[in-house]
Design a protein around this nucleic acid. Structure first.
Lengths: 239, 239
DNA sequence: TTTCCACTCCCCAAAAACAGCGAGGCGGGT
DNA sequence: ACCCGCCTCGCTGTTTTTGGGGAGTGGAAA
């Protein structure tokens, strides 16, 4: 962690990577180059991790998944609402569960310092790229200041590759809702009742219902609320 | 556009910027440094542009807004579904409206070459950073290859600043839903009916209703769907 | 200690959503 | 020319959700 390491070769390599194993190998290479404890890229999802590549211990990974820590992890909660990279120190660690979680993490080999970069892709995809280390605050600040921009780029490339590799599982094309359907979804998400939406769009409520139904069908949603949630998480509508 | 220009000073300056005018000034500076025709950062929204800073002619900007081009612009449509930066050549310009739009753009001083970087922030925010020029394909490919990474970083910083400036409108405190309420919201967002949610949480449906009501109240939502949408856009629940 | 808040349960009538059946016009692409 | 998707409107009936009430526990904070 002394003088600044040139990470351009890593980016070159990342750019040409075409397999998941390569990605993990590169992650470890970066960790070693930067002389830090851990480096984590993981793709977050409501249900749990979809994909990730981490240098944490297997025990911690498993525990994290088992206990559904992604729902209370202050790093995820915090990053989800921000755009900038986030130093773990600036997060909200008050609260009983947060403290317990932190304790548990430290016990499982997670370093006390962390720097996480939120990354977002199409369809509401959300991922985190994190570097983690054990050291004092000053050293860490120096580190993040030095490598901040490189880390943004690395995060970007990691996510690019992850999306490439995982693109097979979502053949669902977005942008498949018609303009009227999008209007309907948007207004519903804003809290209007069907009658109000119909009035807003100057159409009959019956017509509106057709839109909602077809949108629900297209999105594979079970009910209106689900359709709204799906549309939002796919980034089709913005509220 | 000859030898590569060092853009680090620009990034430094961007980082310290604290006003909108600075941002526009920097945009022009970058354009001049790179010796290209145009540079555009704009924030896209369901309704229209919320904020932007461009070097296009005022006439084109106005025409774009007036005609609601953001709903048919192949650059926006295309970038919205991707993560990588996009060269305009790789977009789908077939289709009658697309061609007409392109014609119109060229007539208003837009260059034939473009390179757009999609950027996404919290709450479904979506922005585009674009560089535009008039030249042949080879020159352009050279340019994008040379400056690709710098452009990603610049795009990132532009968006960071834009979010900072525009953040005033959402000072709402989050994280005020109780665990049970979050559970309820999450399951509802996944499409379960109240009966199913109640069963999942092993509580009576009546109790569940209390949660939904109190969550709705806390979020200031008009109905359940609105509550889900609000909770999602605040990042309280992830689906 | 008292006061708050989260959690649990209950009733009821009205509104909304769901699920199914129709119809016709308009525009674009094969 | 045709088909397909989008937009618009109509009807009926069942199921679910909603928005008001009220009431009691336990734990945590003030």
């Amino acid at each position: 962690m002394g003088t600044k390491v040139d990470l351009n070769p890593v980016l070159e390599e990342l750019d040409g990577t075409s397999s998941l194993e390569d990605l993990e190998r590169i992650a470890i290479a970066i960790r070693n180059k930067l002389e830090i404890d851990h480096i984590i890229y993981h793709w977050v999802d409501g249900a749990g991790d979809q994909y990730g590549c981490t240098t944490y211990s297997g025990a911690w990974e498993e525990r994290y998944r088992e206990r559904n820590y992604h729902r209370i992890d202050p790093v995820i909660i915090g990053c989800f609402q921000r755009f900038h990279p986030v130093d773990w120190k600036t997060l909200d660690w008050s609260g009983k569960v947060s403290k317990a979680f932190l304790q548990d993490a430290l016990l499982h080999g997670v370093g006390n310092q962390g720097y996480s970069i939120p990354i977002r892709g199409p369809n509401g995809q959300f991922a985190l790229f994190t570097v983690n280390h054990s050291c004092d605050d000053e050293t860490w600040q120096e580190f993040t200041k030095t490598y901040g921009r490189d880390l943004i780029l690395i995060a970007h490339f990691f996510n690019r590759k992850a999306l490439e590799f995982e693109s097979g599982r979502q053949p669902e094309q977005s942008r498949m809702l018609s303009p009227r359907e999008l209007d309907a979804m948007t207004l519903l998400a804003l809290g209007y009742s069907r009658a109000q939406v119909a009035h807003s769009l100057s159409i009959s409520e019956h017509t509106l219902r057709v839109y909602i139904e077809s949108a629900r069908f297209k999105l594979g949603a079970l009910n209106t609320t689900h359709a709204i949630a799906t549309a939002m998480s796919r980034g089709l509508i913005v509220v």
